[in-house]
Amino acid sequence: MVAYFTEIFNGLLSLFIGMGITFKEFFKPTVTVAYPYETLTMCARYRGHIELVPDEEGNPKCVVCGLCEKACPSDCISLAGEKPEGGKKKELTKYNLDFTRCSLCGSCVESCSFGAIDFSKEYNLASTRKEDFIFNLLQRLEEKKK
C-alpha cells in the first residue's frame, strides 16, 4: 500500500520536474537562424564545389597535369589543355566539373600541387535541371575576370 502511494507520488514529482524544465526553456531566447532571411558565413575550410584559382592576371594557375582527374573517385573532372604556339607551358582549354557525381571529398584539391583549384563557399545550389550542375569552371573563371 505504501509502495503504491510512493510510486504515484514519485511519478507525479518526476512529471512536475520535467514540466519545470520545459517552463524554463520557454523563456530562453531562440537559437535558430531564420534561414532565407539570415545566413551564416561559411567557415574557412568549408568544402563546396571546386573552383579554379586565378593567378595575378586572372588566368588559371592550372598547368594541366591531370592529377585531379586521376585522383577523383567518381570521374567528375574532365580537363584538356594544349600548348599555344610558341608557348612553353600547356594552357587550359577545358575544365568541366560534373557536380552531379561529386561527393565533395576534396581529393582533387589535395592532389593539386600547384594550388590551382580550391573549394568555393557556395552551398545554395538548387535546380530542377541536371545540366545546371555540369560546371564549366574555365568559363566561370573568365566571367569572374570580367
Binding site: 520545459t22 526553456e25 523563456f27 530562453k28 531562440t30 537559437v31 531564420a34
Partner: peptide, 13 residues
C-alpha cells in the same frame, strides 16, 4: 508557437 518557444525556435512567424 508554444511548442516552438519550449524548443527554443520561433515557430510560425
Amino acid at each position: 508557437r508554444g511548442a516552438a518557444r519550449i524548443q527554443r525556435r520561433p515557430g510560425p512567424n
